[in-house]
Structure formats: structure tokens, C-alpha cells
Design a protein around this nucleic acid. Sequence first.
DNA 1: GGCAAAGCTATTGTATACAAATGTCATAGG
DNA 2: CCTATGACATTTGTATACAATAGCTTTGCC
Lengths: 225, 225
Amino acid sequence: MSRASDRAYEAIRSMILSGELPAGSQLGEEALAEKCGVSRTPVREALRRLESDLLVTRTDTQRSFVADWSIDDVADAFELRAMLEGKAARRAAERMTDDALDRIRAANRQIDGALSKPGGDVAGFLEGNREFHTVILEVAGSRRLAALLGTLIEQPVVWRTAHHYGRDALRRSHGEHEELIAAFARRDGAWAEAIMVGHILRAYHAYADAHRGLTDTAMQLEAAE
Amino acid sequence: MSRASDRAYEAIRSMILSGELPAGSQLGEEALAEKCGVSRTPVREALRRLESDLLVTRTDTQRSFVADWSIDDVADAFELRAMLEGKAARRAAERMTDDALDRIRAANRQIDGALSKPGGDVAGFLEGNREFHTVILEVAGSRRLAALLGTLIEQPVVWRTAHHYGRDALRRSHGEHEELIAAFARRDGAWAEAIMVGHILRAYHAYADAHRGLTDTAMQLEAAE
DNA sequence: GGCAAAGCTATTGTATACAAATGTCATAGG
DNA sequence: CCTATGACATTTGTATACAATAGCTTTGCC
């Protein structure tokens, strides 16, 4: 992670996710290189990675821009993610070990702990959540499935979803995890898949509702001018 | 395609697919650069692309090797491909236009033509086959689905499958395409998905059978020494 | 005034040099 | 004989210079 190309990747990525670089902005290699304090070479590498993450698009003439995520794109991403994570959950249930089950339980305990804190520890929730899904993917034992999901899980929308969640929605998420654990403990692949698909799609609708709200607000603001 | 990095990508890729660079070979950037007649810079870029194609793996110390495809990896890839292409077929059926349907029919006519030639025009078959699946992916209208499948369809095993196919297997493939067309014409997503999944999985078993045959032969040769 | 072509600017692509990191081998010590 | 350590070779990472190309502006012609 201390390599210059990794730092450039993280820096550019966080600039996109934070909105500092809004959708549609052109990403000049030289400008980014200066911002990140590295030369163009690692920046180029970072841009290619971001492109394969679909956070960056390139025109036919090789110019890079921050990708524009329409609501349809988001729906598309969640739909695929539901399918792939559902598949991963099924495989994981069929191959579950006692050891991995313990790690999954520990991850969900961490989530519970984060939710019980006074302020509501969103970072702790996200970390536990990531561990939870990571272990499942590991147990599923498909390098390719992991690779495909890797391009879907860390996208801007997914990242922001937890911040749209209210506390009760996070609680419900924790409850669904408990159900998943029950399915894993019984090695019931079909059950695990069903719960996981529902889990992801509920997250999608939470995002879509919040997004609709934001859009409406923006429209009201425009109308008020 | 005339850019040096594209030439390097194609060159290295074909060296891997042809077996000139066997699985496990180390891929030194300098050596590849000389072979391809370009500098290390475009070779590095090509290697990253091949890595995301899973044709190349990198150790924790950043050294590149030709990826080793075990039979389990192959099964894994086909299983995922069946799921994703099945999904694509379902979406395509639900959104099918008359225009696209004509293109799909034309592609299958080309396949038919290739099969009717005396020698058995494998290249023509592959081209028609690619067009067939490409149009479906296009009509499915999911950039992300297309991106995910892109990393699965051009892999060594898939590429070689058609060469393992006998003439009758290719005929059967053509027949399944006809069934798919029928499902598309009726906009029946569930039917299209079912046929597509079967289509891909049959291709897998054709490959696996041929592979088993090859392995047995190799084992016999070893035993004969 | 509109359009086209030419030249200028901005941006990306490639090569090369050097720095950093990794792997290898030989040698010395236990 | 095995292991550890050091020097040396190999390989990858980064910076920079230069080349090629796309985009823009200006100017001249119709």
C-alpha cells in the first residue's frame, strides 16, 4: 500500500467518492499526478484500475472522466450483486467450516457492538460488515466469483448506502445476518441464498428511496429559485 | 489496436493461448518487451489487463506468471458464465426488438453456413457464435453484465472448447441457438434463460470430457515409460 | 457571416534511465 | 551438513523526456 500507484489509486478514489471530483469531470493525468505528489506513471496505473472498477470511464480518444452513475446503473449493479452474492452464500453454506462460522459470528458481534454505541459507530459497522461478507466469499472458494464481486462491492453507491441507512435499518441488517448465520450453521445453501438476495435487494431499495428523496429535495430547491 | 500496448496485449495473450508460454512460466517484463518489439511500459499495461482477465497471476512480490487453470477453475468459470449468460438471455428476451432478432437469426445462419462447408469452417463458426452472443448481451442492456462476462468469455478454455467439439456437437449447438431464437421471438425470459444455462453447461461437459481424455492419454504415456 | 484548414495547445502514449525491492548464490560459521 | 549472512544479479517501480495525437483557436477564403 505504500507504493506510489496504490497511494494514487486511494487518493483519486476517495476524491471521487467524496464528491470532490464530481461526475463528468475530466481526469488529466498530469493534474492528478501533481495532486497526489507522484509522477504520471503510477497515476496511469491507478486510472486503469479505477476504470475496471467502473468509477472512471474513457472516451474513444482515451480521455478519462469520472463515471456518471444514473439510477438505472445503480439498480443494475445491485441486481448483479444480489445474484452473485446469493450464489456465494449458497456455495459458502455448502462448504462452511466451524472455524469460518466462528469468524462470521464474531463479525456480526462487532456489528452489534458498533450499533450499541451511543453515537452509532458507522465506521465500526462498515468494518464488521466487510469482514462478514469477506469470510463468506472466502468460504465460497471461487476465485472468479471473488474477482467479479470485487468490481461491484466498493462502488460509490454501495459505499454511501450505509450512510443513508437509519439506525433501525442497520439493526434489520444485523438481524438478516443472524438469519444467514442460522442458514450457514445448517449448511442450507438454498436458504442462505434466499436471505442474501433479499439482504442485498433491501439495501438497494433503501438507497433508491433515499436517492428519490434527495432528488425531490434538489428539484424543490431548483423550483424555489 | 495499433497502439503498442494493444499489440503487446494481443501478442502475449496469443502466446499464452497457443501454449508457447506454458502455465507457470514467469513473465519477465523485459523479456516480453523484447519479444513484442516495444518497451516495458506498454508491456506492463498489457500484463495488468491479462491479470484482470485471469490469464496471468502475480505473486505477493509482484512477479507475473502464466496462470494455471486447474479443471476446478474451469468448472468454476463455466458455472459463473452459465449464470451470467443465462441472466443476459432472460433480460434480452424481455427487451428483444425485431431488429435485434433479425441480427441474431443472421448470425445463426452464418453458423449454419460454416457447418455446411466441406472442411468444417471452425473460424466461421466461432465468428458467428461470437456475433450471436454479442447481440444478446447488447440487447440485455447492462453495461456491468457485459463487463463481467467480458472477463469470462475469452479465456483459454473457452477458446479451445470449439476445437474439442466434434461436428455433431457443433450441430447441436446450432440447434440450441434455434431454440433460443424461438424463446426470444416469444419474449419468454424464463425459457431463454433455461436454454442458455443448458447451452453453456453442455459446452462445459464437452470440454471436461475431452480434457479427461487428454489427461488419461498423458497418464498412459507416463505409465509406458 | 459561416466554414475550413492550418497551426498551436493540451493530453496521452512510449521509451529510457535510475531507484527500490526481490531473488540467488556463495561463503563462513555453527 | 545445515543455516545464516552478505554480495551480486535480476526484476519491478517510478520519474522524466520526448513523440504522437486529439482538441481548440485563429485566420483566411468563399
